[in-house]
Amino acid sequence: MKRFGKLVIFLVMVAMLSTACATATPAAPAESAGPFRVAVVTPSAINDLAFSQSIYDAMVKIQGEMGEANFQFVLSDGMFVVDDAAAAIRDYASQGYNLVIAHGSQYGAALQEIAPDFPNVSFAWGTAGDTFGIPNVFAYEAFSQEGGYVNGVLAAALNESGTIGVVGPVEVGDAKLYVDGFVAGVKATNPDITVNVNYIGSFGDVALASEAAQTHIGAGADVMTGSAQMVVGAVGVAKEKGVLWFGTQADQTSLAPEIVVACQIYDWAVVVRDIISLIQEGTLGGKAYAVSLQNEGLKMIYNPGFNLPADVKALGDAATKGIIDGTVTIGVGGK
């Protein structure tokens, strides 16, 4: 019985604590006509030089444009546990933020349940194309196969060994879209080139990504690319071995200025700007966006430090132009 006695005391203490705190709680900040307030929830760290960083950079950019007095944002990063992310989304929504961005395709189902409970708050989620028909939900996705295709064209033109290596995370979603686009670009330029694709089964295993890059180089690759945050391991190897690298999601030039040729970057500011103006006009959702080369939500960034031959760059520009005006068909993801 002694043990039960202890438990009772323990529970009483917990209960006391909880009531004490309930009274001491500061009231949630009231909604005001002040700055536009955004809350962002991301699955990985905002400095991952990949997916999560892309939305963070967009927030910083918009804050720069609108000024801190008019635009404020808060964020919860590293929310890879969907359940925790759902709690964060719900909590931010209840605090009167104008817009809550759930930056991960894994958050969709949670958003579908939360958004109807907060009809006055606007939500956005991506990457996906589905607003579930809920009036206060925006959706955004990236046609990452487009930049993948351009990178593939450039890679094929610079390739000499006849082999190109690709390091992917898990064989799904945005990463697969990019990789498939890349392969299509290579094949369209030179069908004889072998493209070796390796999915390492993880978004976080930098060591395995590095070893995959070593293996690609061992198999004769002189040009490589890859997607997601663990590719920094592959970039390191490419730098060491002097193998060319094409990036995506964020500008990876700073990692290895010697060998990064070009990167496709996501500029979500294009989307967020439009969402903000819609919200200010009173439209809280219902629109699905896609960033593309055409609307400049996707951009090809060429490393100024890399001496890219003019004729090769012309090929890349032609591919970009072709995708924008629709004369180039990628054959991936409806493009």
């Binding site: 760290a45 991952d48 060591a207 663990m230 920094v232 970039v235 730098k239």
Partner: peptide
């Protein structure tokens, strides 16, 4: 081996 640092 990797010459980089990242979360986890």
């Amino acid at each position: 081996l990797l010459n980089v640092f990242q979360f986890n």
